[in-house]
Structure formats: C-alpha cells, structure tokens
C-alpha cells in the first residue's frame, strides 16, 4: 500500500518524460498480453485442471486413510505386515540409492569430463530405464534369473535366491532408478568444465584427491538432488518390483505392493494408510526439491558472473 502511494507521489513529482516512458512501456506490455477475459479464462482452466487431476487425488488419499478415525489409521500402520513392508522398502531404497550414487557419479564424471567413442550411445543407454515400461524392467530380470532364465539353473545349483527375494527387488529397483543421479549431474558437471580439475592435478593432487576435494564440493547440491529423486522413485516403484517380488506376505512385499494387496482385499483404510505415508514422502520430496533447485540456481548465477 505504502509502496503504491510512494509510486504515485514520485510519478506526479517527476517530469513528463518519465510519464511518457511509463506509457510506452505499458503499450509494449499490452503487445505481449491478452485481454483480461482471456487471461482469467486461461488461469481458471489451468487451476481447475490441476485441482481435479492432481490435487484431488492427493486429498482423497488422506481422506480415505483417516475415514475411520485416527486410531484406525495408526492401528493399520502398526500391523506387523505393514511394519515389515516399511522395513523392506527402506532397505531396498538404501541399497539402490547407494548403488546408483556410485554408478551415477562415475557415469556423469566420465560423460562430462572425458571424450570417448560411443558417448552419445552411453547417454541414450542411461536414459533408457526412464522410457521403458517398469513391467519390462521387471521382466528382464525374470528372464535372466528366473527358473527358466539364462542364469536360472546356475543359481539353483549354487542355492542363490535372487527372484522373489530381496536381491531381485533391489536389482529391479536399482535398474529403474538408474538415470536419476547421473541425469542430475551430467549437465552440472559439463557446465563446470575441467579447468579446476586440471589446476588441481597440475598442482600435484592425485586423481582421488581431485575428485573428493574439487569435483565433489562443486556438485554437492546436484548429488543431493539426484539422490532425493532416486530415493522417491525407489521407495515408490511398483511395476518392476511387482514382477520380481513374488508377493510373499511379510517377506517380499514393499509398501506399494502392500497397498495393492490391501486394496484388492477391500481393506481400504489400511491400504490408504500405507498410501498416505508414500504420499507424504512424495510431498516432502517435492518441497525438498524446490529448496534444492533454488540452491542449484544460485550456484549457476555465481558461475555466470
């Protein structure tokens, strides 16, 4: 309010030239915008669409989860089956995020800092799990490690269980979440170039020292960003895990799989209670992502100057 008054005062106090300038700017702006009716219609349409297709489903999860009260909600979460699913989900996410952190760092480092034949092919390869159906990602591991699979008989002879057990779930999840860390880091590392590393090496630092003292600090926000998205997908992965898990109750059910089972058994409160935990994970991930994006933007601005 005070700002507005100040504006008016300064405008009336200023000479005609400034007023002319403002009018010209307004005229230019009017070339780049639409009549108010159109503007309101577009905003309404966008807000309505997002509310119906995105906000409402999110609200429904919590409404259904608490439909029988808070006690029923917590009782559903305290079920041994639910606890087992939560534990398994955390273990699997830890494994696949850990693996993909290493893979992603190596892949991004190689792609951003070195030239080698087949680079574009490698980039395409990294993106592949994004565009392949999660069901197919699960299927490939069944074909490899299943009873009739390529390594199936060898695994049976050596008494190693991959499919329908934790290793299979972790493998499928790792495969599906493979691109996140690498994708977050490649553009960042490319932009930063190799000058700082070259300087470090020429000053006598070893390769590892250079990586941990120079490269890593430069990309820490990017790493965090990739890990965040990787973790969200790892905990929520359904299709691929569903194919390889075997749905052994209390043993190989992750949280999303338990949601499916409970839902199909018409245990809606329990299903939506687990679902609400996953929805909260998604919301927290989004908030953290927004914060991290601000950090990443700031980092870029600093580089620009």
């Amino acid at each position: 309010m005070t700002m507005q008054i100040a504006d008016t005062v300064s405008l009336s106090a200023s000479d005609a030239k400034a007023r002319e300038k403002a009018r010209a700017a307004a005229a230019r702006d009017s070339l780049r915008t639409e009549p108010p009716a159109v503007r309101i219609a577009i905003i309404t349409l966008a807000v309505l669409f997002l509310s119906v297709f995105v906000v409402l489903p999110l609200v429904v999860v919590f409404a259904q989860a608490f439909s029988k009260g808070v006690l029923a909600y917590f009782a559903a979460l305290a079920e041994p089956e639910a606890m087992a699913a939560i534990k398994l989900t955390l273990i699997v996410a830890a494994i696949s995020v850990g693996l993909n952190l290493v893979f992603g760092l190596v892949a991004a480092w190689a792609i951003a800092k070195f030239e080698f034949p087949g680079k574009t092919f490698l980039i395409t390869l990294i993106d592949l799990p994004f565009s392949v159906s999660p069901v197919i990602s699960g299927l490939v591991f069944v074909l490899l490690f299943g009873a009739q699979g390529y390594f199936g008989s060898w695994l049976r002879d050596h008494d190693i269980q991959i499919l329908f057990a934790v290793p299979g779930i972790a493998l499928a999840t790792t495969f599906v979440t493979f691109p996140f860390v690498a994708r977050a880091l490649i553009p960042l590392m490319q932009e930063q170039g190799t000058q700082e590393e070259e300087a470090a090496i020429s000053l006598g630092a070893s390769g590892l020292q250079t990586f941990f003292r120079v490269t890593l600090p430069n990309i820490k926000w990017g790493v965090l960003y990739g890990v965040l998205l990787c973790n969200a997908r790892a905990m929520g992965e359904f299709g691929a895990v569903s194919v390889v898990s075997g749905h052994i109750r209390g043993e190989t059910n992750t949280m999303p799989l338990l949601v499916e089972i409970l839902y199909n058994e018409y245990q809606f409160v329990a299903a939506f209670a687990i679902a609400s935990l996953l929805a909260m994970l998604a919301l927290i991930t989004l908030i953290a992502k927004t914060v991290l994006e601000r950090h990443l933007d700031e980092g870029q601005d600093v580089n620009d100057h």
Binding site: V54, V55, P57, G236, F238, A275, A282
Partner: peptide, 28 residues
C-alpha cells in the same frame, strides 16, 4: 510445484487414489 506431483507420487498410490475418486461412489 504441484505439477510435479504425478512424477513424485508412487504409481500404486496414484492408482488407488484415482480409483477412489472416480468410482461410482467417489467424489467425482
């Protein structure tokens, strides 16, 4: 920020939520 929800929300959760929303007794 909400635009990213379908990215972040696990697909099984989206599935049961949309079903509850659009089932014959659902809100929509």
């Amino acid at each position: 920020a909400i635009v990213d929800v379908p990215f972040a929300l696990p697909t099984a959760v989206a599935g049961v939520a949309l079903t509850a929303l659009f089932a014959e007794k659902g809100w929509l």
